[in-house]
Design a protein around this nucleic acid. Sequence first.
DNA 1: CGCGTCCTTGAACCTTTTCAATTCAGGTGG
DNA 2: CCACCTGAATTGAAAAGGTTCAAGGACGCG
Lengths: 248, 248
Amino acid sequence: MPRTTNPAPLPPPQEGFKVACSTCALRQVCLPTGLPAAEVEQLERMVAVRRPVARNTVLFKAGDAFEAIYLVRTGFFKTAASAEDGREQVTGFQMAGEMLGMDGIFSGAHACGAVALEDSQVCVVPYGRLEDLTREIDRLRRQFLRLMSREIVRDQSVMMLLGAMRAEQRVAAFLINLMRRLRARGFSSSSVVLRMTRDEIGSFLGLTLETVSRTFSRMQDDGLLEVRAREVRVLKPRLLLQLVRRSS
Amino acid sequence: MPRTTNPAPLPPPQEGFKVACSTCALRQVCLPTGLPAAEVEQLERMVAVRRPVARNTVLFKAGDAFEAIYLVRTGFFKTAASAEDGREQVTGFQMAGEMLGMDGIFSGAHACGAVALEDSQVCVVPYGRLEDLTREIDRLRRQFLRLMSREIVRDQSVMMLLGAMRAEQRVAAFLINLMRRLRARGFSSSSVVLRMTRDEIGSFLGLTLETVSRTFSRMQDDGLLEVRAREVRVLKPRLLLQLVRRSS
DNA sequence: CGCGTCCTTGAACCTTTTCAATTCAGGTGG
DNA sequence: CCACCTGAATTGAAAAGGTTCAAGGACGCG
């Protein structure tokens, strides 16, 4: 029995939620970043709707026709690709202000699936209209390309993590990355509530859930962290950083 | 003593080489794919020059200012990122018709470096001009976004490889991917001359060079391959494919 | 309050790495 | 043209790091 409820009757677009980038707390992190007010308004008009996505429901799945880019407004997502043999690999976690679905542009069908890890909301940007608007608004086109490029850079740093780091380094890098992104959004810089299971962390890091758990435990024993189930407090961020940098 | 000659006096752009996408053998694989003749000509005029890149020389390195996108015209490249501790991880191999440098769009500086693995030529596309042209030519804009998206999809499949496969599967997947791309360019579908060392393959696959070598040897013993130094002949492509698919 | 899911921990096993010793290939200079 | 020399590749044996299998415990949700 899969933990995710199926593609399911997607909650219908709720027209009640009018999109208002101009007053959105995320406008400094999100797609409109750097756009002047007038252009933000144009963008707003295009972003059709905000859609709520309940915890453990699928926003899109691999193979779905690609129709829109999504921006996380609130909540937390994971994206995962599945190999031919059925195993799945988590390819990323997305939080508020981050973009989802760019993998679908290439072939017109999504290459990976996205699932909400907590009750979330996304802004839906129909791709056809976005494409049109990127012709008209230079800055938007540039910003969109920048975000695509950021995704590439990110993926490459994950490749580095998976290809050249040992378990302890991977976990440390994962935590540091998470904290950094949370801090950029104004959250506590020392305490996280993980939205994902050990299994999902492991899948993302190329480790088993047991190894993730053991690594957390060892880091706790070493006084680096305080781990209580999903809640992690970083006690010695400096040492955590050194773990990643050191080659040992 | 680095094997690569340094950023070095980059061979000066050779204006003698006039770029001619319209007659290029790669036009079905490259950036102009799908553009009508008139637009291909516009593109041609923009692509400043072709630049020769000698074996083991650096096309760009991490940290270099991002100024242009490169398209491999002939030859073979690797891209590699280096961790804080100095170790480097190969993030990809590029052959004729493939694009290089998209990682630089995000921050304005290249996030990884590119080195020619054999004497090569690239077409240099100044990014500023490309950006302008993507405003004017709808199809070019779409094509460019598609190629960026393809890069994301590719990176994700590498993440899958690194995160969820054992050595034998990784090597099999690597060979299959290589053969597929070569075949798409009209090369033999059963025989490859590898342009990279075992060490570079290993770095890309998250394995040591010894493991790569041993895996080749075992596959040879099993009658899957015939390996003679850099030359690999695939004897049983079917079985190779099954290796990747099977979960065992 | 109970059940299911998630997490932790232990022990044995296995894959891959590490270290070390040859062997091989290809390019250079005599 | 051959001998040499260097970087690359192969192979072996020991060690390490991670996985697998298994059992027990904690937490949260209904």
